[in-house]
Each structure stands twice: as C-alpha cells, then as structure tokens.
C-alpha cells in the first residue's frame, strides 16, 4: 500500500512537471474532455436531480412539521453544492471514466504499446497521463456546476409538488439565495478539482502498473475504482477541514 502511495505521488509530481508539454498534447486532451462530457453529462444530470429530490423528500416533511419550511431551500442548496454534488459526481466519474482510463492504459501496457512508446523516446506520462489528468480535472468541476444546478431543481420540484411539503418555488429559491453564497459553490468546485486529480492519478497509475493478461487488466480496473472511491471519501473529510479553516 505504501509503495502504491509513493508511486502515485511520484506520478503526480512528474505529471505536474509535464504541464509545460500540455499545448503539444492539447488535441488528446480535448478528445478526453469530449469523451468525459459525452459519457457522463446525462448520467450526472439524472443522478443529481434525484439526489436533490430525495434530500428535499427526507428533510422537507420534518422541517414543515416543526414550522421551518422556509429553510428547506437553504438546506438542500448547501448540502448539494458543498457535499453531495462533488462527492457523488466524483464517485460517478471514478466508476465511469476512471475505470475506462485504467482499462485502456492497462491494455496498452499488457500489449506492449507502452514499451513501444518508450523505445520511440515518447514519454508515456506526457503522451498518456498528462492529457487524461488535465481533462478530468477540468471536466469534473464543470460537471459539478451542472450537478449543483440540477440538484437544486430536483429539490425545488419535490418541495413544491410533494403534498407533505408544498412550498412555493419563490420561497424555496429565496431561502436558497439567502443561505448559499458564492464561497459555498467555490468550496464544492475546489473539492471536485482535488477529487478529479486524485481519480486521474490513481487510475493512470493502476493502468501503468498492470501485469498479466486480461485478468490483470480486470484486476487493475477494480483496484483503480475502489482505491479512487476510498481516496475520495478520505480526502473529502481532509479537504472539508482545511476549507473550514479558511472559512469556505
């Protein structure tokens, strides 16, 4: 485990060092960006719509019962933008995109494509890791912005049309506007950026470490997704503490 962490830190550092090469790899980066958006946007919208909805459904009736119906918008708004959207989107992307990254790089490793790159003096970190890590680091915060807005809408729809809550759109969004500040959205975006880099590095690292045949690729994919999710949840706590320290 400690060897894996060490290797991932080295990979992260080398990827940062490779950033000046990004302009040369921009086409691959845009390909990846399109792939991530195309594969995940619809899923992200559906997921966040229902997350917002279920949050309103769980909290709404209890709040109404205690005469606090005016706070539903704020509770849903804050929970979605600071916690649920970044974490759930990161988990979705780890499963949907991280697994594909680990599988693709893993099969390239098994079928000697990465060795071929090395013999051509093409650095696999520049060619494979950099465009993927940058693309996922840009795509996830963008997806989170969508997810936040759709999540808020999901909460609003349930708050308005559920008989046990039945508040107006105006009441929901007025409260949401008065509670949620730009800093709260920024909090979610900072988290998602950190989660995205983690997913990119963990999954590319697993791909590059793949050994064996198809079974090895399968093992790498499973490990990449599980490790990413564990890292996301651990980092969620750590980053939240750090951001609270900075009053975000």
């Amino acid at each position: 485990m400690f060897q894996d962490i060490g290797e991932m830190l080295i990979l992260f550092w080398r990827t940062l060092q490779a950033l000046p090469q990004l302009w040369r790899q921009r086409l691959k980066m845009f390909d990846q960006l399109f792939e991530i958006g195309n594969a995940s946007l619809l899923m992200a919208c559906i997921l966040s719509l229902f997350i917002g909805g279920v949050l309103a459904l769980q909290t709404g009736p209890v709040m109404v019962e205690r005469g606090l119906s005016g706070l539903i918008g704020g509770i849903v708004g804050l929970s979605v933008c600071k916690e649920l959207a970044p974490v759930m989107m990161a988990v979705l992307i780890a499963g949907r995109i991280g697994s594909a990254m680990a599988a693709e790089i893993g099969s390239m490793r098994v079928y000697q494509e990465i060795d071929a790159l090395k013999t051509m003096n093409i650095n696999p970190i520049h060619y494979l890791v950099l465009p993927r890590v940058v693309a996922i680091s840009l795509a996830l915060p963008m997806l989170v912005i969508f997810a936040i807005m759709v999540g808020w809408m999901g909460g609003a729809l349930v708050s308005v049309f559920n008989n046990d809550i039945s508040i107006s759109f105006a009441s929901y969004f007025n409260n949401l506007r008065s509670v949620v500040e730009l800093g709260d959205v920024l909090n979610g975006l900072i988290k998602s950026f950190i989660f995205a880099m983690t997913i990119g590095i963990v999954c590319c690292h697993q791909g590059l470490c793949t050994i064996g045949g198809p079974r090895g690729i399968g093992r790498s994919v499973t490990k990449a997704v599980v490790n990413s999710i564990v890292m996301i949840l651990i980092l969620d706590y750590v980053v939240t503490r750090v951001l609270l320290y900075f009053d975000l």
């Binding site: 099969s107 390239m108 079928y111 000697q112 060795d115 071929a116 013999t119 051509m120 003096n121 093409i122």
Partner: peptide, 24 residues
C-alpha cells in the same frame, strides 16, 4: 536511434496505420 519490432507488433490500437508509422 534504436528501434524495436515487438512480437505482438506493439501498434497503438487507437491510431491508424499511418499515424502509427509516423508517430515518432
């Protein structure tokens, strides 16, 4: 300038034949 022809070919499956040959 060293080159290697791999047992499996080692061609990049995501690239066309021309892109593979011109990759270097």
């Amino acid at each position: 300038r060293l080159a290697m022809v791999f047992q499996s070919g080692g061609l990049l499956n995501s690239l066309t034949v021309a892109e593979n040959v011109g990759l270097y």
